[in-house]
Design a binder for these strands. Structure first.
Length: 369
DNA sequence: AACACGGGGGT
DNA sequence: ACCCCAGTGTT
């Protein structure tokens, strides 16, 4: 299957510093563009935000949810989210707790907070309508180079280069013969990618290049036999050489990390909030449908958990209070205690508060904001 | 430029 | 077990 890299490794190692411009004649360029557009017309997945009638705001929401997140996980959440908050003003009016509850376990919950900040900015500064200008989009919270370009292209039909990891991989393989894109997107890379976007059907080209990278030209096991541009692909022609530079990126740890423990604490807060707000339908992580109406914590009623239950030494733990917790909350609390000692939990809880993902109540409880 | 930041599913 | 995912913001 994979081919040895011996004969070519010297020359390919040389070429990886500079993002080589598309070493292709205009005829090849046009052919690649046409092939991707034609392939996309047939192979495009039926994603909810590709349905007619999706607003620019809906496109933005789908892009933010999709950051570092497979779309199979995004689709159901997007539908529930847009049903609850169709327009920026709707999201702006929600409480952060509702927003984090609806985000559920999509990951990187700060994205949810930024998306709401974004909605509030749009409501306040843009009359509730997303700006069309890419630079203005880029200035919004949670919107970086990729998302600004994606919205400009997919929502507003602007001719701009949309460079996510999929597109970078496809272009890098076809034109530069490189198996994997570098860690960071360079200016030069963006420049020649921009030159590649066709004048006509650029939306279809952008979406198609992403789709091709997601479905065929995948990172791990590309299906070159199904690839519409295989005949033009420099990487395939070279025998699909491994990438010498991509070796030593350390496998990302998960067990025992702060991220894992933070996530467990966030789950406690979601479960606690859900079990108190609507005792009706609160399942494990199933934020599900409409986060209806109120987040009003009447008086001083806590919608969180006593922080001591997360941090106290086992000997001093109030076992009775722990037993009194609703099942999903107790399970989440036990998980936190299994993952980290009290000191670490306390430190990370403080981080969460600093990040705006949690608040401390007057009675020593930790809650969603 | 290098890190931190979730979580789940594919191989 | 390891890899990857429609990235962004901070240091």
């Amino acid at each position: 299957m994979t081919h040895r890299t011996d004969a070519t490794s010297q020359t390919s190692a040389r070429a990886q510093r500079a993002p080589s411009p598309p070493a292709a004649d205009p005829r090849t360029l046009a052919e690649v563009q046409r092939a991707i557009i034609a392939w996309f017309a047939d192979a495009a997945r039926d994603l909810p935000w590709r349905r007619p009638g999706t607003t620019p705001w809906g496109v933005l929401v789908s892009e933010v949810m999709s950051q570092q997140t497979p779309m199979s996980r995004v689709a159901p959440r997007w539908s529930a989210w847009m049903a609850a908050w169709p327009a920026p003003a709707d999201l702006a009016a929600a409480s952060p707790a509702e927003v984090l509850l609806a985000w559920d376990s999509l990951g990187y919950p700060r994205r949810a907070l930024r998306l709401q900040e974004c909605a509030r900015t749009v409501a306040r500064d843009w009359g509730g309508e997303l700006p069309r200008d890419e630079a203005a989009l880029l200035a919004l919270p949670g919107v970086g180079a990729y998302t600004a370009a994606a919205v400009a292209s997919f929502a507003y039909g602007r001719r701009t280069a949309v460079l996510d990891v999929n597109v970078r991989r496809v272009l890098g393989r076809v034109f530069a013969g490189r198996a994997h894109p570098s860690a960071a997107l360079s200016k030069a890379e963006a420049r020649w990618a921009g030159a590649l976007v066709p004048e006509r059907a650029h939306v279809e080209f952008n979406a198609g290049a992403m789709e091709l990278g997601a479905l065929v030209c995948t990172s791990r096991s590309p299906a070159c036999e199904r690839c519409p541009v295989a005949v033009h692909c420099a990487w395939l022609a070279a025998g699909r050489p491994a990438d010498p530079a991509a070796q030593q990126k350390r496998a990302q740890a998960w067990e025992g990390t702060d991220r894992q423990l933070r996530g467990a604490i966030m789950r406690v807060l979601r479960e606690a909030h859900a079990s108190e707000a609507g005792s009706g339908a609160a399942g494990t992580g199933a934020a599900g449908s409409a986060p209806a109406g109120s987040s009003d914590a009447p008086g001083g009623a806590s919608t969180g958990v006593p922080e001591a239950l997360l941090t106290a030494p086992t000997a001093q733990l109030d076992a009775e209070a722990l037993d009194g917790l609703p099942n999903p909350v107790r399970a989440a609390v036990l998980r936190v205690r299994e993952l980290g000692d009290g000191e670490r939990v306390q430190r990370l809880a403080g981080d969460l508060v600093s990040d705006g993902l949690a608040v401390r109540g007057t009675a020593g409880e930790l809650c969603l904001p």
